[in-house]
């Protein structure tokens, strides 16, 4: 009794400790964003100082201005998520409800493409994009993000579809529904929570993507990743400005994550708890 109460307490402390450890860099980032460059650069870390919005003012005006990059990030993330879902739904439908001998292999193969390091395909991708004129184009980044997230989206949608009893799909078939009617009137409504979680995850992954964004765009299609990177200058102090820019860049996704966290957790543990 008392020992279990003690271990509960110990686990509680441990959980809080780990959470703080993970959260600390973000807290530090937030604090630095409100400091002057001198304070940010100072060797003695200070928690108490007079906050200033100076860095934010500079950051918002950097390059083409914050909103240009934010718009590109939002556009490419939303578009790639929608295209990804549109491609994944029919693929997952076929694999979940009409599986054959090769279905399992296909799934593993798709996910295994994620094991290839991105730099491995950087040169060919760059050359192809250069030739077809997709460099520094929002469509180019959208396609890249779609390709990058597609295996994960298909895998997740597939597992949500698999949770729908096959009998229900067969009942719709016998009731006279075409494949599209079964999809839109039966399967999608039942998988909606799962699709929402999948969409959110894809959105976050695309929003956070930096490798391809930085290498494939620099101006017109530049996303927030490019925006943050542009604060690195060879000389001068830039910690506070960069922190402010980072706060601006992650704020939308943190707000989104905050409001959808229940949905995310439910969706990601869907199969496990049922």
């Amino acid at each position: 009794m008392t020992s279990s109460r003690f271990s509960n307490f110990a686990f509680g402390v441990l959980a809080w400790g780990v959470a703080l450890l993970i959260f600390f860099p973000i807290l530090w980032l937030l604090l630095t964003a409100f400091k002057t460059e001198q304070q940010a650069f100072s060797v003695d870390p200070t928690f108490w100082f007079t906050p200033t919005l100076e860095s934010f003012r500079t950051a918002l005006a950097q390059g083409n201005g914050y909103w240009h990059y934010a718009w590109n990030s939002a556009l490419t993330a939303v578009a790639s998520t929608l295209v990804g879902l549109a491609l994944a739904v029919p693929a997952a439908y076929a694999m979940a409800f009409y599986p054959n001998k090769r279905t399992d292999f296909l799934l593993v193969w798709m996910v295994s493409t994620k094991f290839i390091p991105a730099v491995g395909v950087l040169i060919p991708m760059f050359l192809v994009y250069k030739t077809v004129g997709l460099l520094d184009h929002p469509l180019g980044l959208t396609l890249l993000f779609t390709a990058m997230n597609l295996p994960i989206i298909i895998w997740m949608v597939y597992s949500y579809f698999r949770d729908i009893p096959k009998d229900i799909v067969e009942a719709a078939d016998i009731d006279g529904a075409s494949i599209l009617q079964t999809l839109f009137k039966v399967v999608l409504p039942l998988a909606l929570p799962g699709l929402a979680s999948t969409g959110l995850l894809a959105l976050i992954l695309a929003w956070n993507e930096s490798f391809w964004s930085i290498t494939m765009s620099d101006h017109r299609a530049a996303t927030l990743a490019v925006y943050i990177a542009s604060f690195k200058s060879a000389e001068g102090l830039f910690w506070a400005k960069m922190s402010a820019a980072s706060v601006l860049a992650i704020a939308p996704i943190i707000v989104l994550g905050w409001f959808t966290q229940r949905q995310m957790v439910r969706g990601l543990t869907f199969g496990a708890v049922k």
């Binding site: 009893p165 009942a171 016998i174 006279g176 529904a177 009137k185 039942l190």
Partner: peptide
């Protein structure tokens, strides 16, 4: 199946969980 003019009752019932009883029957 849909052109055979048959109706099937499944062991699992296979009702559409997101529809009401009336909607299930009317589908």
């Amino acid at each position: 199946p849909k052109e055979r003019d048959i109706a099937m009752v499944f062991q699992s019932y296979a009702l559409y969980p997101h529809m009401t009883v009336a909607e299930n029957m009317a589908f």
